[in-house]
Nucleic acid binder design. Structure first.
Lengths: 195, 195
DNA sequence: CCATTAATTGACCACTGTTTAATTATATAA
DNA sequence: TTATATAATTAAACAGTGGTCAATTAATGG
């Protein structure tokens, strides 16, 4: 009553991730179970444990790529032409937009406090944060020290995490997000006159 | 094999809450189960459901009082003598300290995204926030509009939620907390020269 | 063709929150 | 006092969770 399937319909990490991704984006880490994923795939849930050590590793694989996606997004803004201050504003707004566009991912990346998840996610957040900090430091012409940058990050994080998985889109909060960024730029000592 | 116990050892909401509180403070909402609480009490877990509708209601009862505790803390600062700006600084720092002193409570009050919990927690957060906003508005001599106050709150929330249930105490992060508050006061357009 | 390996299953474990019929102590009424 | 009704407790059950593992079978290599 236990069997191996024909090779052309063998399970792969990719096939599992595809199904997991879909469920995950709409329901979030805590509301997607290994059995749900397996059911969707037409396999027993045990088979997933052949391809992934556990749930945390599966979702880590799903989320890992999003750290570099965030990095790339910030770097793209960095490389655009324009004044530093405008670009800095874009970076901060970009972080918020990223959080809203990938709420389920953001939840694992920066929000969930789970020992098992944190076991896998030990490097990526730090690396991404360092890139963010470096960027802000440069764009502020060195006027933002590391303490202020950390405050900045926590303040952006507060914005995203409050709305995270609330159902609201970035468009819904864009006005407030811009105001928030303006507020934070002022905290940095960099003024901007659009509100 | 099922029984009612002698009246002097009857279970009460208070006795349940006492045990729940203790477990809850050290382990948090998600890591305390109804069965654990019952075991600790020496009762079957079913009995708890006679006194509370469900887990969310139990922990709601535990957390409810902390909203007014927060209100009182802020009001106490408000009533102290001193300049508005110094008091405003104290209010912001006080919010952070509250979050750290009651991390498990803060988690339910402002952090957890759970339909069942949110069902019970529909008024309290708004009421407490309104009090906070009113206070900040007054202490800033009307210079902080509602948008800026919301930014302020989200930024404080970011600070607390990042460290929440990390094991760190307020003392551990006090220096950073003070810097964060300074940063935010600058965002409000209110300057202060202690760092 | 046979031995080995790789992939899959389903039964199992120890949990979780929640419901409910049965039971019994207590309070109330006759 | 006694019968009845109510209030409190229990154990069993349900449906779910993450995770493990021996057994099975397909594919592979010698």
């Amino acid at each position: 009553m236990a069997a191996r399937k024909a090779v052309e319909q063998e399970l792969t990490r990719e096939r599992i991730l595809d199904v997991a991704r879909e469920l995950f984006v709409t329901h979030g880490y805590r509301n997607v179970s290994m059995r749900q994923i397996a059911r969707e795939l037409g396999y027993s849930h045990g088979s997933i444990y052949y391809h992934f050590q556990n749930k945390a590793e599966l979702f880590y694989a799903l989320v890992r790529e999003y750290f570099s996606l965030l990095d790339k997004k910030l770097e793209t803004i960095m490389r655009k032409p324009g004044h530093s201050l405008e670009k800095l504003e874009e970076v901060l707004l970009g972080f918020i937009e990223f959080g809203f566009t990938h709420q389920s991912h953001y939840e694992i990346m920066f929000l969930i406090k789970d020992d098992e998840v944190n076991h896998y996610l030990c490097q990526e957040p730090t690396i991404s944060y360092n890139k963010f900090a470096d960027l802000v430091h440069k764009l502020s012409d060195g006027r933002a020290d590391s303490t202020k940058i950390w405050s900045l990050f926590l303040s952006l994080h507060g914005f995203v995490s409050h709305y995270c998985r609330s159902g609201q889109t970035f468009a819904d909060v864009e006005t407030m997000a811009k105001a928030h960024v303006g507020f934070l730029l002022k905290g940095l000592g960099l003024f901007f006159n659009n509100n």
